[in-house]
Nucleic acid binder design. Structure first.
Length: 373
DNA sequence: CGGATTGATATG
DNA sequence: CATATCAATCCG
């Protein structure tokens, strides 16, 4: 494009008529007018000429940033997607879906020790999230979906603060109850058991919305939303596990994607083993960017370990133990104890001992309250 | 360990 | 009065 430059008419007289010799006043006026003219031309150039693309990348960046500042005069749209830090977990929260995008944690045998109790803690909206972008307990109530921890309560017994943090709804997704209490629970127990074999275990968990092919042959991402706040129900859940050796080097990694539905004892964890790259692609997130650097040394978790979840009998014995521990009446204690026979389970020495101890404890207690009332 | 539901009580 | 909170009970 050619620049259009017109000579201002007010200068014509001066230039055509020549300078008035001896008139410094006039010379001053002329110089003044020329300066003014140059200024005007430059201004026209600034207005009319589209700047040529600078070859320098840095210059380009600078220009875009400067233009961006003008464009975003009224602020940068804010989706609140800053990484959020808590006592014992870190997460990215999705304000649109009202669930986390991912939740990261680190556990070790030492970190798992503790006595923080989930009975003294309640699910609550995350106080750090703007209310209109937050899920509420009411959204889950009678929805048919349970509130599933991503960073499990059982990984946060170290302190009551960590326990309470894990009950923030930013750490929760709508999860099938049977899945939550069953397969997913066993997966979480498996992760905790890994700390007996490996010094440190790093875990990232989160929800996934996978596309399905509909009758028309097209693909759709479809998910239910619950409650007034339209909390998104994930179609699947993922968990990435990294275990370290004693030198604190990454030893093995496993990525799993599990459907958000009941999963029975007939399924193995390895049935849900997936390629990390594929999971990341589907999620749109590079989950462990710094693991890539040492990828060559990181083995498949299920080859280093067997990726075997706790079995049915072991599992049922496990939570019967928990129930015996929490029994507060003799009647309750007996009810739980009778479950063993119903399920044809044989109590081990620990369970028998626990039962005996609890029985004498509760007998004593009920004698006392019986007398006082 | 992972949860929901219900009913009594407290509260504005 | 309706809603919030807690304790008790229950299930896999």
């Amino acid at each position: 494009m050619k620049k259009v430059r017109t000579r201002p008419t007010y200068l014509k007289g001066v230039l055509h008529g020549g300078l008035a010799i001896g008139s410094l006043w006039m010379l001053g006026r002329v110089l003044d007018a020329r300066a003014k003219y140059r200024e005007m031309v430059e201004e026209q150039e600034r207005q009319l000429i589209i700047p040529t693309l600078p070859t320098d990348d840095e210059e380009m960046k600078r220009m875009k940033a400067a233009r961006g500042q003008e464009i975003l005069k009224y602020g940068i749209p804010d989706n609140g997607k800053d990484v959020r830090y808590y006592s014992n977990h870190v997460l990215l929260y999705d304000q649109q879906k009202r669930i986390p995008t991912w939740v990261a944690e680190h556990i070790s045998a030492n970190i798992l020790k503790g006595s923080a109790d989930r009975r003294h803690v309640k699910f609550r909206p995350d106080p750090e999230v703007e209310e209109r972008f937050s899920a509420q307990n009411g959204d889950y109530w009678r929805s048919g979906w349970s509130r599933g921890h991503m960073a499990p309560a059982g990984d946060n017994r170290k302190s009551q603060e960590a326990m309470q943090d894990s009950f923030n709804l930013t750490n929760v997704v709508p999860q099938n109850l049977e899945n939550n209490a069953g397969f997913w629970n066993r997966l979480e127990i498996y992760c905790r058991d890994l700390t007996n074999k490996f010094s440190n275990v790093f875990i990232i968990s989160g929800p996934l919305m996978l596309p399905i092919v509909d009758e028309d042959g097209n693909k759709y991402v479809k998910y239910q939303v619950i409650g007034e706040n339209n909390v998104a129900v994930p179609t699947h859940l993922f968990k990435v596990i990294i275990v370290e050796d004693k030198k604190r080097k990454p030893k093995a990694m496993g990525a799993f994607v599990v459907p958000n539905e009941p999963i029975g004892y007939d399924k193995k964890l390895t049935d849900y083993l997936v390629d990390l790259e594929a999971l990341e692609k589907s999620l749109g997130v590079t989950l462990v960017p710094k693991l890539i650097e040492t990828e060559g040394n990181v083995k498949n978790l299920c080859k280093v370990d067997n990726c075997k979840l706790i079995g049915r009998k072991e599992f049922e014995l496990y939570f019967i133990g928990r129930k015996l521990e929490s029994a507060n009446t003799l009647h309750r204690l007996e009810t739980v104890w009778n479950e063993l026979e119903e399920k044809k389970l044989k109590p081990d020495r620990y369970l028998k001992e626990l039962y005996k101890q609890k029985k004498s404890e509760l007998t004593e207690q009920e004698k006392l309250t019986g007398k006082s009332t």
